[in-house]
């Protein structure tokens, strides 16, 4: 029986980067953030209020982008 696909780093389309396992992230200000969960989500849109972690803000950005699309 073959094993299941199980990446430890996952890039979610229009969303965060998932990190499985223990990691230390050095942010732009030189501060280290340690993961505390089995999986952590790292902000990739740059707009999170709790960087380096994702806070779901990308959903508002993509919703806004959709609203701007011509509907007719």
């Amino acid at each position: 029986m073959s094993d299941f696909e199980h990446a430890s780093v996952v890039l979610c389309p229009a969303g965060p980067m998932l990190l499985r396992g223990k990691h230390e992230i050095l942010d732009a200000d030189g501060k280290v953030h340690r993961t505390v969960r089995p999986v952590s989500a790292v902000c990739m849109c740059g707009r999170s209020a709790i960087k380096p972690w994702c806070d779901g803000t990308h959903r508002l950005l993509s919703a806004g982008a959709r609203d701007d699309e011509p509907t007719g």
Binding site: C12, G15, R37, V39, A41, I50, D55, G56
Partner: peptide
């Protein structure tokens, strides 16, 4: 829940 559910959302959906 802001932080945890940003993760859980991705894992639960995908």
């Amino acid at each position: 829940h802001v932080e945890a559910d940003s993760v859980h959302e991705q894992v639960a959906l995908r």
